[in-house]
C-alpha cells in the first residue's frame, strides 16, 4: 500500500534546548484513518505542524505526499499544501472575510471555477449546518461555529490528506458527531487520508482506524 507519510528518526524542536518529538518512526498508509492522542503539551500540535511544513525537522526525515520536508523549497511546500485540508486548533479563520470567503480559500488557491466554487461552498455550509449564518464574519460566530467553518474549509477542495487538530474541542455532542460523520465520509467515499488529534476517540467509529499516542517525546502505536 502507498504511504502518504513516512517519518524516520524524526525530531522536532522550537529551540535547541528542548526537543518536543524525539526520533519518531512511523508511516501512514494512504486512505487510512488515524487518531493521535496525548496529554496537553505532549507535542500533538507540534507533530501536525511538521506535517504541513511549518516546523521543519531538526533531525531525521519526513516525507509527506512524496515531498521530503527537510529543507523543502517554498514552491514544493506550496504545491503540497494545496492538497492538504487542515483544521487548526485555533481555527485560523481570516477575520476580515465572510465565512463563505473563508471556506472558498482553498478553492481559489487551487484555481477552481467561480460556479463550482459557489455551489461547493453552499453544500459545505449545509453539511456543517451553518446555512443560516451566510454573510457573517468569523468573530460574529460562536467558537463552535467557527470550528465548523474551519472544518468546511478543510474539506472544500477534496484534499488527499486531512489534518485536524482537536476538531471537536469546542463542540457539543451533536456537533461533534456531525464532524466525525464528515471525516468518516471523506475517508470512506473519497479515500482521503485523515489524521485527527483528539482527547477522546469516539465510540461510534464505523471505519477502521489506527491510533498513535505521544508521550515523553515518543510516538508509538496503540494496538
Amino acid at each position: 500500500m502507498d504511504k502518504v507519510i513516512i517519518a524516520q528518526n524524526l525530531s522536532l524542536a522550537y529551540s535547541k534546548d528542548e526537543t518536543i518529538i524525539n526520533k519518531a518512526n512511523f508511516s501512514i498508509d494512504s486512505g487510512s484513518f488515524v487518531f493521535i492522542t496525548g496529554a496537553s503539551g505532549s507535542g500533538k500540535s507540534t507533530l501536525l505542524k511538521s506535517l504541513y511544513g511549518v516546523l521543519k525537522p531538526i533531525e531525521g526525515s519526513l516525507v509527506v505526499g512524496g515531498v521530503e520536508l527537510k529543507g523543502v523549497s517554498n514552491a514544493k511546500l506550496n504545491f503540497l499544501r494545496k492538497h492538504l485540508g487542515i483544521v487548526f486548533q485555533d481555527y485560523k479563520l481570516v477575520k476580515e472575510w465572510t465565512i463563505e470567503k473563508n471556506i472558498m480559500l482553498p478553492l481559489i488557491i487551487n484555481g477552481y471555477e467561480k460556479s463550482i466554487t459557489q455551489s461547493q461552498v453552499d453544500s459545505l455550509l449545509k453539511h456543517v449546518r451553518l446555512q443560516h449564518q451566510v454573510g457573517k464574519y468569523p468573530l460574529e460566530l460562536s467558537g463552535g461555529e467557527q470550528q465548523r467553518v474551519a472544518m468546511a474549509r478543510a474539506l472544500a477542495h477534496n484534499p488527499i490528506l486531512i489534518l485536524a487538530d482537536e476538531p471537536t474541542g469546542n463542540l457539543d455532542d451533536y456537533s461533534s458527531q456531525l464532524i466525525w460523520n464528515l471525516l468518516e465520509g471523506a475517508n470512506e467515499q473519497l479515500k482521503t487520508t485523515v489524521i485527527v488529534v483528539t482527547h477522546h476517540i469516539p465510540e461510534t467509529m464505523k471505519v477502521d482506524y489506527k491510533h498513535y499516542h505521544i508521550e515523553f517525546g515518543e510516538v508509538h502505536e496503540v494496538i
Binding site: 517554498n74 506550496n78 499544501r81 492538497h83 487542515i86 480559500l105 482553498p106 481559489i108 488557491i109
Partner: peptide, 16 residues
C-alpha cells in the same frame, strides 16, 4: 500578516 499567513498555510503563492 495574519491573512497572508493563513493563505500561505493553504499553499497560496506569494503573488496571491
Amino acid at each position: 500578516n495574519e491573512r497572508m499567513n493563513i493563505m500561505g498555510l493553504f499553499g497560496a503563492p506569494t503573488w496571491l
